[in-house]
């Protein structure tokens, strides 16, 4: 046996995995943000993208910056949340909300809606428009939450690239919108700004699905394409949060390709529109009616 030869260097993808794990650990120990229960493949992609965007050579280099430069934290959080969405993404879902869910919501004197993981707010404004057109907005309260402070700020501003407006207008009409999306925004240079009256009943708040608890009683929870980034146990925990937050018979709307097959908490939800992932909370004790 040749004792002079050093240990075989691990392939660099394995080294990267070690570095990502240390990065996640540093983020948790130093700032309390826990990404350890995120789905690993996507998380690693995002971390590596962050490395590239920062022109760093290794994950370890940004781990060091993260530990020593608190100002770097928002950059990291923004990079790890990469919020991408559209207004009225999956128009069928918004049509179903309008046609199947709103008639039930209309029976409540006050309607509370939790938009969990609102990112840059495209869906918050979509929802507000939909409620407005259904005549329900005056008695609605939307809680729009995200753990990413800079995303929340952008959501509040409601300013988006004008190049997106065309697709969003098509989505809006496909969702059954009764006006023109242009009625709800003003365009200027390369940007559009959503009518700020649309957020008169929106509360934007920082809430982390990983670590925070229930904070409102909701009739509808929208959380689309957020849980896809969570491991099974975290997905299950979050569904538990939604269950505890929803009134009996309340609605949960997830992304159209999400699966509840590995979440024990899913037993509490009955599919109302299985294809579009709209669920209703079962009555808790089976008897309540």
């Amino acid at each position: 046996m040749n004792t002079l030869a050093g240990p075989t260097p691990p392939p660099d993808t394995v080294l990267e995995d070690i570095e990502v794990e240390l990065f996640v650990r540093a983020l948790k120990l130093r700032y309390g943000y826990d990404f350890s229960q995120y789905a690993p493949a996507s998380l690693k992609r995002r971390v590596l993208q962050l490395v590239q965007a920062q022109h760093a050579d290794t994950v370890s280099a940004i781990t060091a910056r993260l530990l020593h430069e608190p100002d770097f934290l928002p950059v990291v959080l923004e990079g790890l949340s990469v919020p991408v969405s559209e207004m009225f993404r999956d128009p069928d879902v918004f049509r179903a909300l309008r046609e199947q869910v709103f008639p039930v919501l209309a029976s409540y004197p006050q309607i509370n809606i939790w938009q969990a993981g609102c990112a840059h707010g495209q869906e918050v404004y979509s929802l507000a428009i939909l409620l407005e057109e259904a005549g329900l907005y005056e008695r609605s309260q939307i809680y729009a939450t995200d753990f990413n402070e800079s995303a929340l700020n952008q959501a509040q501003e409601g300013i988006y690239p004008a190049r997106d407006a065309q697709l969003w207008s098509r989505n809006y009409l496909a969702a059954g919108g009764s006006h023109s999306l242009a009625d709800y925004y003003s365009a200027r240079y390369e940007l559009i700004k959503l009518d700020q009256r649309l957020r008169r009943n929106v509360i934007f708040a920082n809430h982390n699905l990983v670590t925070d608890e229930v904070f409102c009683e909701a009739h509808l929870v929208l959380c689309r394409n957020v849980l896809i980034y969570f491991s099974d146990p975290l997905q299950d925990r979050t569904l538990g949060l939604f269950r505890d937050s929803l009134v009996r018979g309340g609605f949960l709307c997830l992304g159209t390709r999400e699966s509840l097959a590995f979440a024990p908490s899913a037993v509490d939800f009955t599919p109302m529109n299985a294809a579009l992932r709209i669920y209703r909370l079962e009555s808790r004790n089976g008897g309540g009616g």
Binding site: P40, S42, V84, I228
Partner: peptide, 17 residues
Amino acid sequence: YHLLVEASHRFALSVDE
């Protein structure tokens, strides 16, 4: 959606850029 394979040989989805 982006389609990814986890080390557990299960699929994951993402709506990243």
